[in-house]
């Protein structure tokens, strides 16, 4: 493991865990269903956050 690879791993991890990479995943998925309308990043992030209105996710003590 080099410092560079460690850095790359940290960056990948942080992007994954914060959901910063979610939109890219959505774009990947969308490629499989091209007939669906493509959401912009703004629209997609709104949709993603608003889903939590219905499922806030419990936090433990």
């Amino acid at each position: 493991m080099t410092p560079r690879s460690l850095l790359r791993f940290v960056r990948w991890y942080v992007r994954e865990i914060t959901g910063a990479s979610e939109y890219e995943r959505y774009l990947d998925r969308h490629r499989a269903h091209p007939h669906m309308p493509l959401l912009s990043r703004r629209e997609y992030e709104r949709l993603r956050t608003d889903r939590r209105n219905a499922a806030p996710g419990a936090r433990c003590c």
């Binding site: 493991m1 992007r15 990947d28």
Partner: peptide
Amino acid sequence: SGSGSAGTAEGPRAGDL
């Protein structure tokens, strides 16, 4: 697998970690 896909372009490469 979902999670990895976005990382395909910039995620850690093979042998990294």
